[in-house]
Lab assay of single mutants.
Amino acid sequence: DTLHVTQDGKHIELRGLSEEEIKLVEELLRRGRKVEEALKIIEELRK
């Protein structure tokens, strides 16, 4: 699936995420994380 995010005035499209990963990214962003940080966390969880 694809998640569309706008952060720091930039539109970012995150592709290839599972539904659970999207929920996790959304939660991390709500808690003030940056998109880059959220993606690093997803990458770690995929290992």
Results as ranks from 00 to 15, higher is better:
residue 32 G to K: 04
residue 14 L to F: 01
residue 11 H to L: 14
residue 1 D to N: 10
residue 30 R to N: 12
residue 10 K to Y: 06
residue 4 H to S: 04
residue 23 K to W: 12
residue 22 I to V: 11
residue 44 E to A: 12
residue 10 K to W: 05
residue 31 R to V: 14
residue 20 E to G: 11
residue 1 D to P: 15
residue 46 R to H: 11
residue 34 K to E: 08
residue 3 L to S: 05
residue 32 G to F: 02
residue 37 E to L: 07
residue 31 R to L: 12
residue 31 R to T: 14
residue 26 E to K: 13
residue 41 I to M: 12
residue 44 E to F: 06
residue 15 R to I: 15
residue 6 T to D: 15
residue 12 I to E: 12
residue 33 R to N: 14
residue 35 V to L: 07
residue 39 L to Y: 04
residue 15 R to S: 15
residue 2 T to I: 14
residue 10 K to P: 04
residue 34 K to W: 12
residue 41 I to T: 10
residue 28 L to Q: 09
residue 5 V to P: 06
residue 44 E to M: 08
residue 20 E to A: 12
residue 29 L to W: 01
residue 47 K to R: 12
residue 18 S to T: 14
residue 45 L to C: 02
residue 4 H to T: 10
residue 30 R to I: 13
residue 4 H to G: 06
residue 3 L to W: 00
residue 29 L to R: 02
residue 12 I to A: 03
residue 8 D to Q: 03
residue 4 H to V: 15
residue 19 E to Q: 11
residue 24 L to F: 08
residue 1 D to V: 01
residue 44 E to R: 08
residue 41 I to F: 11
residue 12 I to L: 09
residue 18 S to Y: 08
residue 44 E to K: 06
residue 15 R to V: 15
residue 33 R to S: 14
residue 8 D to C: 03
residue 26 E to I: 15
residue 35 V to W: 02
residue 7 Q to F: 00
residue 7 Q to W: 00
residue 25 V to I: 08
residue 20 E to C: 11
residue 7 Q to A: 07
residue 20 E to R: 10
residue 40 K to I: 14
residue 11 H to K: 11
residue 4 H to N: 06
residue 22 I to T: 07
residue 8 D to T: 01
residue 37 E to D: 10
residue 31 R to C: 14
residue 20 E to M: 12
residue 2 T to H: 14
residue 12 I to Y: 09
residue 17 L to V: 04
residue 16 G to V: 03
residue 5 V to C: 13
residue 37 E to P: 01
residue 7 Q to V: 15
residue 27 E to C: 05
residue 34 K to P: 12
residue 22 I to F: 07
residue 16 G to R: 01
residue 19 E to V: 14
residue 19 E to F: 11
residue 10 K to A: 08
residue 14 L to Q: 06
residue 45 L to V: 10
residue 1 D to K: 04
residue 6 T to Q: 10
residue 41 I to W: 10
residue 16 G to K: 02
residue 3 L to I: 15
residue 10 K to T: 07
residue 46 R to G: 06
residue 31 R to G: 14
residue 40 K to C: 12
residue 11 H to N: 11
residue 45 L to T: 12
residue 17 L to H: 01
residue 8 D to G: 06
residue 47 K to C: 09
residue 6 T to V: 15
residue 34 K to L: 15
residue 28 L to Y: 10
residue 22 I to K: 12
residue 11 H to E: 15
residue 16 G to L: 02
residue 38 A to I: 15
residue 3 L to A: 09
residue 30 R to C: 10
residue 47 K to Y: 07
residue 7 Q to R: 01
residue 18 S to L: 10
residue 40 K to D: 13
residue 4 H to I: 15
residue 21 E to Q: 05
residue 8 D to L: 01
residue 15 R to C: 05
residue 22 I to S: 10
